[in-house]
Design a protein around this nucleic acid. Sequence first.
DNA 1: CAGCGCAATGACACCGGTTACCAGATCGGT
DNA 2: ACCGATCTGGTAACCGGTGTCATTGCGCTG
Lengths: 360, 360
Amino acid sequence: MNERKPGKSRRGASRAGAESEQSRRRPTINDIARLAEVSKKTVSRVINESPFVKEDTREKVTAIMRELAYEPDPQARGLAFRRSFLVGFIYDNPNPQYVVNAQQGILDGLKGSGLELAVRPCNRAADDFIEDMRGFIQRQKLFGVILFPSVSEDERLAELLQRLDCPYVRVASVSLDEADSMLVTNDAVGGAQAARHLADAGHTRIGHVTGPLTFRSTHERKRGFAEGLAERGMSLNETWVREGGYTFESGVRCAAELIALTPRPTAIFAGNDEMALGVYQAARDAGLRVPADLSIVGYDDAPIAARVWPSLTTVRLPIRDMGRIAARKLMRQEGVESPEADEQVRPTLVVRASSGDAPG
Amino acid sequence: MNERKPGKSRRGASRAGAESEQSRRRPTINDIARLAEVSKKTVSRVINESPFVKEDTREKVTAIMRELAYEPDPQARGLAFRRSFLVGFIYDNPNPQYVVNAQQGILDGLKGSGLELAVRPCNRAADDFIEDMRGFIQRQKLFGVILFPSVSEDERLAELLQRLDCPYVRVASVSLDEADSMLVTNDAVGGAQAARHLADAGHTRIGHVTGPLTFRSTHERKRGFAEGLAERGMSLNETWVREGGYTFESGVRCAAELIALTPRPTAIFAGNDEMALGVYQAARDAGLRVPADLSIVGYDDAPIAARVWPSLTTVRLPIRDMGRIAARKLMRQEGVESPEADEQVRPTLVVRASSGDAPG
DNA sequence: CAGCGCAATGACACCGGTTACCAGATCGGT
DNA sequence: ACCGATCTGGTAACCGGTGTCATTGCGCTG
């Protein structure tokens, strides 16, 4: 008698005919061992690439595994290893484009390794945030965790991961941890590129709508922007800086304030593309033409940047690459072979139609 | 001697001090059984909500589980159940917004159930597509799979899932399967709404840029659109219909063709927002004002729809809801309690600035 | 009061791999 | 030919749960 609740599952609904039962069942390590005339331990050694197996034996076992299309059961392996083959992707970024790209990159990096990706959005402001994460990490005995901004900047989570002995890689705009666990995005470089581009076009009154000051990336982008201006003999005028919230609405509001100044800036560098679109809106509201009256530069190169009119000049972040690199970093940390050595992550400026020469 | 490859893992690197070892280890079912003075089988019964446990016993066991913050190991359970607690989300939609929303919805539905979500992008055109999927499903012994368009329309995959006895839910614009496994998106309803909206604004020459004809949704949206026009005593003129590819560029191309006709349409219904933006571009190229000279309606309500100027009238698809409903459908199929009964998925028209009265 | 049926529980094997430990085989050196 | 060192492979226990089946205790019936 089955003790489980009913549930009209289709499983096991097949007829009792046991004819091809043997051949239908997935092969186990015992089947391989029997056919190869070795012990299951030896098969296990082959699976785990132990060096203590004679070449002949290894080949024989490998051949049979291939023949039966044998795939070791990750659950059983995980149980014995006291560890799963699940990599956790924990994120709290509201930008879908960002999340999907990061996720895709991580999957690129994981491909072929036998590791699966379990995704987990989170809310850092929630009371049970840490408890929730602890449950996820510990219950699933995660192989490792990959963190992207802004949750990557959370020290409570980092501390939890260390305490639970769970390997992780943090992607962030500044180094917060030991090098092995960090992938730095060089946001300052992107800021500097935006600054040089606008300065070289002759702009001298340049505004900046920043992200929330609680984000590291905000400071990095601003710092780089200031440095870029400095290279051209200018300096960032705080009068023309406003703190936004990485949202469209905040972009509108901040840009409207900047445009209302006398003299007004002739160019605005927005901390992300979303806010840059808000700047477009504010410019339209004020009757300013882009880029004739006002040049605009964004950050991220969201797909929308190429779709709006005029198309948006912006700093492209290689998010997908970052995901791939982060995944491989994690694997290498854990002794899994991965094809590629470390790469540098560098933002690049994509010049489109929203930026032009300074008026006058 | 350790046979594994090195890998400078931090795991197990802690000092040998065994003082708090006992209390640090996660409790197992044996610990609970010992403290509750019952057999582990009885604890197992409590975990699985078997009805054959005396109320007293259940309470005692539950109390101890809570006290020790015991969480059964999903790997061990899965091994014994011959099934994992992983739900697979297989997708091939290129639209990040769509993917993230669907994913978020599925996670909403799964929340608190103990099921985790493993994501898997795929390429239906690849030679090893089915083999790849088979590996994923069988190796991980997936609890179930959720499919969104367009991979949800793939019959080879559906057949594979049936053969492997893996439960699934398909989200699609038409019913392709038994009701339990299907969540229908009623795309025709959305098409009809667009048609009525434009007809009521006085448009009589209405163009339509469709998606690829290989997609079911394309036919549904077009069918609904035609029905909506019919309700207003009009009919869809095939002269004003073009097949696009759900991409920006195809939107530009098709709209340019339509605009070049004499007489030209005064309104265009695009099969998705991406193409609708292409229509904007074509209108600008032709010197037409939106919506004064040309009204435009899209489909999806992508975030960009509210950001462009003029903002885009479009049909909103409740993708996140669809994800939640799909997840719960899957759970209910498998006898897992889920809080909510079935809901209907209905697109809604969001009227913005890109559509207006017919000129003249 | 014996006999029955059923709720409640436990003993034990098993899921598919792994490690710990041991024993047999191989091999070069003397 | 003998011996210890070095490989190689086997056995048993274990990872943390579940299935099967037997056993216990109890209220009810005849």
